[in-house]
Structures are given as structure tokens and as C-alpha cells.
């Protein structure tokens, strides 16, 4: 199954959803997203992932992703396939998916090794002026998971802040799961709710990433994760403590305690 998640890049990353995937021991997932901070690293380390289609995988404020490194360098816990993108190429792939176009021609990445590494792009020349261009095929994720501040019970999303590829990922996907900080009325939905299959009311779902207007980023949590997961044993202990050691998000937030309260805006 392919899942676009963390589509706003550094903020509004639905970690609660990823943690539930880990608790349910989901396997053979394809992860799609430009960056998604440490969410991809966690799912890879937990053995949930077969392939990543992304522009960047790591820990944005702390550095490299230890689990991502172990998977690619040592096959621990398993080998994964990487389908390289840049931010613009994945944004265009999802835009193509969103409008039902087979591909989008672009001028980015000419002279980069990313097209060859990705393997799905085609080098071409413009039929209009003969200039070189790259054709980026559409990505149609099975599922997009979109976190937002407010959603209506029928799936209308009110999203505030920089949105990355969220809208196009939702339009391109076969189905959409919305993870909302609050359930309420939405006047101008970000995209048509017709493909929303579930609205999950899950306050605090994006911690340690920020959700604009609701809570700030927990910078130190990213650094703690970075330090704790240098070894496989350290990673397993971190997952045991923060994912499998809590039954749900409410328990996770209680475990954070006053630290969580301090982040809320």
C-alpha cells in the first residue's frame, strides 16, 4: 500500500497515525512525501517500509536519520528501495496525479543524477521549441493522510499555515484520511471532501512537529530521538517507550506531561 503522509513538510506531520501503523505492525508500505521529518525514519526503523519515494529523509534540525542509514547501508531491519525525488519533482508528480495528467514536463533536475536514480522519469525535448526537458510521471498514492486544525465530520478540511503538497496529495490519492485537532464547521475546505474515507479527531496528533495555531514544534524531542536512536537497540527502546509502550495518542500526551502543555499556543 502507498501512503502520502507528512505532506506539509516540516509542520503538521501526523505522527499519531504513523505510530498506530507501527503498533499494528503494518508491512510493505510505500511512503510518499517530500520530507516528513523523522516520521519516515521511524516507520523504516520499525520495519514497516518497503519503498520510499521522497526528496529528503532524515532529521531536519538534528541531521541524518539513523534508521534510514541502517536500512540503506546494512539492510537493518530490512533493505528498502529508494525512489529519489526533489521537492519540485515530487510536487509535480502529485500535481499530475491531482489533475489526472499522465506526466508533467519540467526544467528542473536537468544535469542531476536524480532522474537516473529515480528510474521513472524520461528525458525529452519540448515539441514546441526543441529545448531539453524532463517528464515526471504522475504519482497516485493509495492513501493520503492529512493533518489539519479543523475538520467537519464529513471530511471538509480547514488548514492554516504553509501546506507543502497537501492539497495535491489529497486530490491524487485513492482515499484520504483526515486527522483533525478539532472537529467543527468548515466554510472553505482545502479540497473537495468527496474522497475522505475517515475523519479522526486526534488532538496533539502531530507532536513533535508543530501545528500552526495549535502548538509549537518540540525541538528538543527531535534531538532526543537523534541521540537515542544511534544504535538499533536504542531505536527499539525508543519505540518500546514512545510507541508500543503507550496504547494511544492520549496516553502519549499524558506521558509528555507539562512539556506538552508548554508547547500549546
Amino acid at each position: 500500500m502507498s501512503i502520502a503522509i507528512g505532506c506539509a513538510l516540516e509542520p503538521a506531520i501526523p505522527f499519531a497515525f504513523a505510530h498506530e501503523l507501527i503498533r499494528q505492525a503494518r508491512r510493505e508500505l510505500t511512503l510518499i512525501g517530500p520530507i516528513s521529518d523523522i516520521l519516515f525514519d521511524q516507520l523504516i526503523g520499525a520495519g514497516c517500509v518497503a519503498r520510499v519515494e521522497a526528496a529528503w529523509v532524515g532529521n531536519v534540525s538534528a541531521g541524518l536519520g539513523h534508521s534510514y542509514r541502517r536500512a540503506l547501508e546494512q539492510g537493518v531491519p530490512r533493505w528498502i528501495e529508494v525512489r529519489d525525488h526533489s521537492n519540485f519533482s515530487i510536487a509535480q508528480a502529485l500535481l499530475a496525479g491531482a489533475i489526472g495528467a499522465p506526466y508533467i514536463p519540467t526544467k528542473t533536475l536537468l544535469g542531476s543524477d536524480i532522474p537516473r536514480a529515480n528510474g521513472t522519469f524520461r528525458e525529452s525535448v519540448s515539441p514546441f521549441d526543441g529545448s531539453p526537458e524532463l517528464l515526471i510521471p504522475a504519482i497516485r498514492p493509495d492513501l493520503a493522510v492529512i493533518a489539519c486544525q479543523v475538520a467537519s465530520p464529513d471530511g471538509a478540511v480547514d488548514f492554516a499555515g504553509p501546506s507543502g503538497v497537501s492539497r495535491d496529495a489529497a486530490l491524487a490519492a485513492g482515499g484520504v484520511i483526515v486527522v483533525a485537532e478539532r472537529v467543527g464547521e468548515v466554510e472553505r475546505p482545502m479540497f473537495s471532501p468527496t474522497k475522505v474515507v475517515a475523519v479522526v479527531h486526534e488532538p496533539g496528533a502531530c507532536h513533535p512537529s508543530p501545528l500552526f495555531g495549535a502548538y509549537e514544534r518540540d525541538h528538543e524531542f527531535f534531538h532526543e530521538y537523534h541521540r537515542a536512536t544511534r544504535t538499533t537497540a536504542g531505536f527499539d527502546a525508543w519505540i518500546a517507550e514512545w510507541v508500543n509502550g503507550v496504547p494511544d495518542r492520549a496516553a502519549y500526551l499524558r506521558k509528555l506531561g507539562p512539556r506538552w502543555e508548554a508547547l500549546r499556543t
Partner: peptide, 18 residues
Amino acid sequence: QHPTVALPGSGGGADIAS
């Protein structure tokens, strides 16, 4: 696919460079 060191990737860097 099997590097000595896996770095994070392009992000927007390759687009900005292009």
C-alpha cells in the same frame, strides 16, 4: 541503493540549483 553513507537527499536543493 546500497551506499557507504546514506545522506538525506535533495529536498529542494536540486531545484534551487537547477
